[in-house]
Write a protein that binds this DNA or RNA. Structure first.
Lengths: 336, 336
DNA sequence: TGAAAAGATGAAAACGTTTTACTCTCATTA
DNA sequence: TAATGAGAGTAAAACGTTTTCATCTTTTCA
């Protein structure tokens, strides 16, 4: 690959001048500029980003770091796509990392990203208190949290109103007259699932329905497996639920599989509400009623927040709370 | 962040010695080594990868480039995950790029990757003849093609036997006695779709069924939309198909949606075979019969090929052809 | 007309590593 | 005893940029 030096040689100027032509900073004589640009074109010169990065310590790497739990979860694919699209618009590339909710991996990738001197990092933090993430922020790397919050409030954050999402889902079912509504949620420390559960509880309370611990199942949101098993369990109850609320898309799949295996009719025998509006939700039969989170949009907004921070590092951190929407299709109905 | 220089200062040695301690190349006096390592730990020293990269031109960046059409296509998510997992195992990070099948974007990202001096690149090439990709290879960057081939044979490649996949799918339907089988495939230049279509044609020929152009629809494999429209069209035919073969997962979704909208019963009114075994395929009702491609495994193998090439740049390029498998579920059945 | 300002350019330092070439000390060998 | 070699370390160059500082022209205007 040609270097600045070669361009300079052919254009018969110093490398400083070539550099100036690129960065438009100071003025360069139009003729010289023209000549240099021609040579650059002829040699198909591409600046070496590594060298650029080494020299300009902050904010010029044109690289973003993105750490997500698992790209195979379509909700995160949407976020990734949103991030990538706005990054591309600004000539940025993205380093993608899958943490598997494993703090060791998160740590590893955070170190890599820092040592790659990325301009900024976007991530749903694994823990609400995260030493590593805090450390990153302290050391001056712009960070945006997406999907999940940090306890510390001084970080740009994009989340959806999960509580409302949970509430909307459950209220919708309640309106059909259901009394026994099960929820499949995560056992872990993630703010998002906690809040969805809170929404569930609030909706029940508002309808004067007592909580039944039997109907609250906390499983692993990373696979369909545990939801499948819990659903089977729920259906075997002496007084089984007439509706199930699954709090993410993988869990929804588990519920669906179990319900079909039991030959239950949806929604006549059981109503189902999912979380996340995946492409398959409208294609299946019956089409699935879901709470939609705007994943793609969240990725976009998070990245925009990051770019805004590059421009104005002193800006007050903001929290963007996006609205979930209830998309009513055919998987919910009157209790029989 | 602490630098080599600081470590050297505290350990009272030259930076050369510190560098040696890190890279174990030459021997360092055990006592000195111990002292240096202690200081490194105390300062929480992380080598600056950018500087490392700049200095050691080839094969030390610990970065891989991965360009895929669209991360929102779950087949590609699987590949990405496979790549990431083996990369992580070798302390590599991955720069992920979405090309949208757009040569301009592909070009942009390829430039970025090269100028980031990644150690290698994995991609399904957009065109079978690709100047840009060829150029990259010529310039010495290890490249592995995955999912799609380049015409040039001297590249490591991991693909599935698409022709066989197509054949398997159609033969399965034929065995149920179907005569009118539609195929939804891509209009474009991708080797994979071409081959699936060839498989379709061969299966029909082997069963002495004439091709009917009416039943071959070439649409956009990047969205569900065109498949949906084509399916509607097919169903309105005076002599409509009794089975549909959709050649990727997005198209399958389009078919499903249209079929349900028309209130058709699967498989009694119409049989459906999809391509790609997505998590939702087994969860829906009826569970979907599909041709499974081992996406995750393909990602893994491709990455392993890349690492092998790092070790032995002279190695003969290999083509790995993976076997597709027919997974029979309930969306296919006897023609009524 | 001459001093100052502006315009155009270049030399060299710096970023944080790795690597080459060198120095110094001490033990071994002929 | 002198020559050789091994062991342990260092100084400095190099990677390809950006940036600081300096230099040389040319223009401006009192």
């Amino acid at each position: 690959m040609p270097t600045l030096k070669e361009v300079a040689k052919y254009a018969k100027v110093s490398i400083t001048t070539v550099s100036r032509v690129m960065n438009e900073a100071d003025k360069v004589n139009p003729e010289t500029r023209e000549r240099v640009q021609r040579v650059m074109r002829e040699l198909d010169y591409q600046p070496n980003r590594v060298a650029q990065r080494l020299r300009t310590s902050k904010g010029q790497s044109k690289l973003l770091g993105l750490i997500i739990p698992d790209i195979q979860n379509q909700f995160y694919s949407s976020i990734v796509r949103g991030v990538e699209d706005v990054a591309y618009g600004k000539d940025y590339a993205v380093i993608l990392c899958n943490s598997d909710e494993n703090p060791t991996k998160e740590r590893f990738y955070l170190d890599v990203l820092q040592s790659e001197s990325v301009d900024g990092v976007i991530l749903p933090p694994i823990h609400q208190y995260s030493k590593v993430v805090e450390g990153l922020i302290e050391s001056g790397v712009p960070v945006v949290c997406v999907d999940r919050k940090l306890v510390r409030e001084a970080v740009d954050t994009v989340v959806v109103n999960n509580e409302k999402g949970g509430y909307l889902a459950v209220k919708h079912i309640l309106d059909f007259g259901h009394k026994r509504i099960a929820i499949l949620t995560s056992s872990s420390q993630f703010s998002s699932f906690d809040e969805r559960l809170t929404g569930y509880k609030n909706a029940l309370k508002d309808h004067n329905i007592a909580l039944d611990d039997e109907l609250i199942k906390e499983g692993d949101p990373r696979s369909t497996e545990s939801a499948y098993l819990f659903t089977k369990e729920l259906l075997r109850l002496s007084n089984p639920p007439t509706a199930i609320f699954a709090t993410n898309n993988l869990m929804t799949l588990g519920v669906l599989e179990a319900v079909h295996e039991e030959q239950l009719n949806v929604p006549d025998d059981i109503s189902i509400v999912g979380f996340d509006d995946m492409p398959w939700a409208r294609a299946i039969s019956p089409p699935l009623t879901v709470i939609k989170q705007p994943g793609y949009e969240m990725g976009r907004r998070a990245t925009e927040l990051l770019f805004q921070r590059f421009e104005d590092p002193k800006r007050e951190p903001v929290q963007i709370i996006m609205e979930p929407t209830l998309i009513i299709r055919k998987s919910t109905g009157r209790v029989k």
